[in-house]
């Protein structure tokens, strides 16, 4: 069964996308994930200057999900220019994630990355655990999103996705602000929180940064609801991200309105083959339930 989709004119062999921040630091690493069946891959978020990120431990799991506080470690936009120069040689489209503190910095990074053969740009305005960025940088308001999006829009000709936080009802307004700023699509959602896990024997928070964004199964219902609300409010394609671990999860997210699905934490739960396995599970489920194409599924829950 054909699972290929069109996302703002980009052809994806299937709707699974490697979410930003997981295994996406280098071209080789992205190629390895592509060979495991991902329909597209996203780079680790790239900032203008190199960053070393938060102290370890940066990742911890608990019974319902995962917390991370990586703090955007990345070699910076100049290094990315070299690392991703031939990124179009990968078998699947590669999405560049560009991040900044000031709106101008988002635009500067996006300008550098636009010169590279990426298929699209994504700008996260939603990280919950990095000072100066996302929720800790005041980026997740309608005004900030409109401004960041329109500045980036001026600098990139690539399809532009704005990655929103896992919020309450206001995500609808944030999505509208992204649309008004010139976004071509919405990525929903980033990790929620921040949350905290305490090691009670040591009587200390586990993470080096103490707090971290929550992802994995615990996030899924929130992510599904955000996508559902955004689908009703704006007429832009949505990449649904948050807790997708199985083919059933992916179908649920697409029924909420996502055209494609991002997968991050499940790489930990199921290994890198999670992409081909989720695709296999989607196909089996569709066959068992009489669906012939993904277009019948996207938004199906809105009746």
């Amino acid at each position: 069964m054909d699972l290929s989709i069109d996302l703002c004119g980009i052809k994806l062999p299937n709707p699974t996308i490697l979410a930003s921040g997981v295994l996406g630091v280098s071209r080789c690493s992205l190629a390895r994930v592509a060979s495991c069946g991902a329909g597209a891959v996203t780079t680790k978020s790239i900032s203008l200057e190199p960053r070393s990120g938060h102290d370890n431990p940066c990742v911890v799991t608990y019974e319902a999900g995962m917390l991370n506080a990586m703090g955007y470690p990345n070699p910076g936009a100049e290094a990315a220019r070299e690392e991703f120069a031939a990124v179009d040689q990968l078998p699947v489209p590669v999405i560049a994630s560009a991040v900044g503190t000031e709106p101008e910095e988002f635009a500067a990074v996006a300008e550098i990355l636009t010169a590279l053969p990426f298929a699209a740009t994504e700008i996260p305005v939603s990280c919950p655990h990095t000072p100066g960025f996302g929720l800790m940088g005041g980026h997740a308001s309608t005004d900030a999103i409109r401004r960041i999006t329109s500045l980036v829009r001026d600098k990139t000709k690539l399809p532009l996705f704005v990655k929103l936080p896992a919020g309450g009802p206001e995500v609808v307004d944030l999505a509208k602000a992204a649309r008004d700023g010139g976004a071509d699509g919405i990525t929903a959602v980033n990790t929620i929180g921040p949350g905290m896990v305490i090691n009670i024997e040591a009587a200390r928070p586990v993470l080096g940064f103490k707090k971290g964004g929550v992802s994995g199964p615990a996030l899924r219902p929130v992510a599904v609801r955000c996508v559902y609300d955004i689908y009703e409010a704006v007429d832009l394609p949505i990449i649904g991200v948050g807790g997708i671990t199985t083919g059933r999860d992916a179908i649920e997210m697409m029924m909420a309105g996502a055209r494609a699905v991002g997968i991050g934490s499940a790489v930990y739960y199921r290994g890198m083959d999670v992409f081909s396995e989720v695709c296999r599970e989607i196909r089996t489920w569709m066959e068992d339930h009489g669906y012939e194409s993904l277009t019948e599924i996207v938004g199906a829950a809105h009746q």
């Binding site: 921040g21 997981v22 295994l23 996406g24 630091v25 280098s26 080789c28 690493s29 190629a31 390895r32 680790k44 990120g53 370890n56 940066c58 990742v59 990586m70 470690p73 790489v267 930990y268 890198m272």
Partner: peptide
């Protein structure tokens, strides 16, 4: 960073 092949920060090639 993570120590468990999740974050990608310790890579050599792929």
């Amino acid at each position: 960073k993570c120590g468990i092949a999740h974050c990608g920060h310790c890579q050599i090639g792929a």
